[in-house]
Deep mutational scan, measured.
Amino acid sequence: EPLWIRPDAPSRCTWQLGRPASESPHHHTAPAKSPKILPDILKKIGDTPMVRINKIGKKFGLKCELLAKCEFFNAGGSVKDRISLRMIEDAERDGTLKPGDTIIEPTSGNTGIGLALAAAVRGYRCIIVMPEKMSSEKVDVLRALGAEIVRTPTNARFDSPESHVGVAWRLKNEIPNSHILDQYRNASNPLAHYDTTADEILQQCDGKLDMLVASVGTGGTITGIARKLKEKCPGCRIIGVDPEGSILAEPEELNQTEQTTYEVEGIGYDFIPTVLDRTVVDKWFKSNDEEAFTFARMLIAQEGLLCGGSAGSTVAVAVKAAQELQEGQRCVVILPDSVRNYMTKFLSDRWMLQKGFLKEEDLTEKKPWWWHLRVQELGLSAPLTVLPTITCGHTIEILREKGFDQAPVVDEAGVILGMVTLGNMLSSLLAGKVQPSDQVGKVIYKQFKQIRLTDTLGRLSHILEMDHFALVVHEQIQYHSTGKSSQRQMVFGVVTAIDLLNFVAAQERDQK
């Protein structure tokens, strides 16, 4: 057995438009009618409502009807409940999964919650491996369901041993009777949507819809739904939504950006999952974080739909894509998950301010006199920076000697690579993860907040409520011999709460 199987392995699926269902090699399930009293909570997966979006479509000038398939009504709160249950049931049916076995899954959280929910009911041990950027709410729900959680670096490539995929496979090879159901490759993922989600949409719309818009992560949702719609409703256009920084969209030119990270969760990847059939997507749109969270908040405030950030991405694209539809036509959007997962993220004004998705003037509360002053007023001194090749031991000596707790790590040209902190280095040394002679590049981390000289002290204040420091950066445009230009970030300084307090105190003292 291989040590790991690539999540982007070539698909062996034989589905073709027009091929009889009787030739399918898979076990198919028909939607079942729910009894009045459910035998367990797993029976509350599927049969989610279709809700008309009344205000947002009109606000953006849509002539067509805009409908939302509300997947956050599933038992675990997301569309991923469907595939989690289906993968477990299919693994039980073919004898792969037996009582007492362990389920391991690399996930952005929602599939993990679905699997942990099913594992709690069915009696399996469950280990979820997820990147650090995923919300604390997801972690809390997983723990409450009895799952064990392993976190991995957000910026690790999918084929790196440190990625959530790599760590999951390492655990599988170490733990007896453990299984990775593997949402990236498992046919049960798109089949769950082909058999149930798509049929529900067709039934709820009486077979009449002209466009379907869905955000894409593993691709199982859009693949399964689109294949069924292509068979039953061939005139329906399928629109895929991919965040900026991901590479799922086609044509490839759409993916060209210097951005590699994004805040919206559960969609987009740096590889093409095996289950994603991009041939059934008629057109791709890219979405960005700001519009995703703005539209998610709009869905909550104006439509009462308590959905997550990827739902915002989907609707932001839908109001663009559906401009081509006329009166009497219908566009369906998939709202994948609930706001429950993001209470401390985009639902929080403070978080939105820190990330730059909300401006101070958007909030009406009274601010102190210094709130709208610029960061450049602080008069920061030149920063202490270190090269990635310097040793951890030497870096600790320098920081202690100069009285700093942290320093930016830059390359020879001064471009920011990340940050090192005294606390992080000492804990890594004590844990045996690094040696004093190791290069400081081994303990770089990139989960820090950046701020510009033109940003306000109010925004800085919000950042420092949650973080010990902020890195002050400025952009530099560099022209190359080819005539092309590129933008790079340079370090201007490091600012802490002490710097802000000293500035405010000094100004008030001078005024007296």
Rank of each mutant, 00 (worst) to 15 (best):
V241Y: 04
D242T: 05
D242A: 02
E244P: 10
E244F: 07
E244A: 10
G245R: 03
S246Q: 02
S246V: 00
L248A: 04
E250N: 08
E252G: 09
E253F: 07
L254F: 02
L254R: 08
N255F: 03
T257L: 10
Q259K: 12
G266M: 01
Y269I: 02
P273E: 03
P273T: 00
T274Q: 05
V275E: 04
L276K: 04
D277I: 03
T279D: 08
T279H: 14
K283S: 10
W284A: 00
N288P: 12
N288E: 13
E290A: 06
F293L: 03
T294N: 05
T294E: 12
F295G: 08
M298Q: 10
M298G: 10
I300H: 05
L305D: 00
L306T: 04
G309V: 01
G309K: 01
V315G: 09
A316D: 09
V317H: 08
V317A: 03
V317G: 10
A322K: 02
E324Y: 12
Q326L: 03
Q329L: 09
Q329H: 08
R330A: 09
C331W: 02
C331L: 11
V333L: 14
I334F: 15
D337V: 00
N341S: 05
N341F: 00
M343A: 04
T344L: 02
F346N: 04
F346A: 02
L347I: 10
S348L: 07
W351A: 02
L353R: 09
Q354M: 09
Q354V: 06
G356F: 02
G356P: 04
K359G: 03
E360D: 14
E360K: 14
E360T: 08
D362M: 10
L363F: 11
K366H: 11
K367C: 12
P368H: 06
W371M: 09
L373A: 10
L373E: 15
R374V: 09
R374I: 15
E377W: 08
E377C: 06
E377M: 11
L380P: 13
S381V: 13
A382R: 11
A382Y: 05
P383W: 07
L384F: 12
V386R: 02
L387V: 09
P388L: 14
T389V: 15
I390H: 08
I390Q: 11
T391S: 15
T391V: 14
T391A: 06
G393K: 13
T395R: 08
E397F: 14
I398Q: 11
L399I: 10
R400G: 10
R400S: 08
F404Q: 05
P408R: 02
D411S: 13
D411M: 10
E412Q: 14
A413W: 08
G414N: 04
I416V: 15
V420P: 02
V420H: 05
L422S: 11
L422Q: 07
N424I: 10
M425T: 15
M425D: 08
L426R: 12
S428L: 12
L430R: 15
A431S: 06
G432D: 12
V434G: 10
Q435N: 12
Q435A: 14
P436G: 12
P436D: 15
S437K: 13
S437H: 12
S437W: 11
D438A: 05
Q439V: 14
V440C: 15
V440P: 11
G441K: 11
I444L: 11
Y445R: 08
Y445I: 15
F448M: 06
I451E: 04
L453G: 05
T454H: 09
D455R: 05
T456E: 11
T456C: 12
T456A: 15
L457T: 04
L457V: 12
L457E: 01
L457D: 00
G458L: 06
R459H: 14
L460N: 01
S461P: 14
H462P: 07
L464P: 06
E465G: 15
D467A: 15
H468V: 05
H468A: 06
F469C: 14
A470P: 08
H474C: 11
Q476I: 15
Q478Y: 12
Y479K: 12
Y479E: 12
H480F: 13
T482N: 15
T482F: 15
G483R: 15
G483T: 15
Q487S: 13
Q489A: 12
Q489M: 13
V491N: 12
V491T: 04
F492Q: 12
F492I: 14
F492M: 14
F492C: 13
V494M: 14
A497L: 03
I498K: 12
L501R: 01
N502P: 12
F503P: 14
F503N: 06
A505C: 03
A505M: 09
A506K: 10
E508W: 10
R509P: 12
D510G: 11
D510K: 11
D510N: 13
Q511M: 13
Q511C: 12
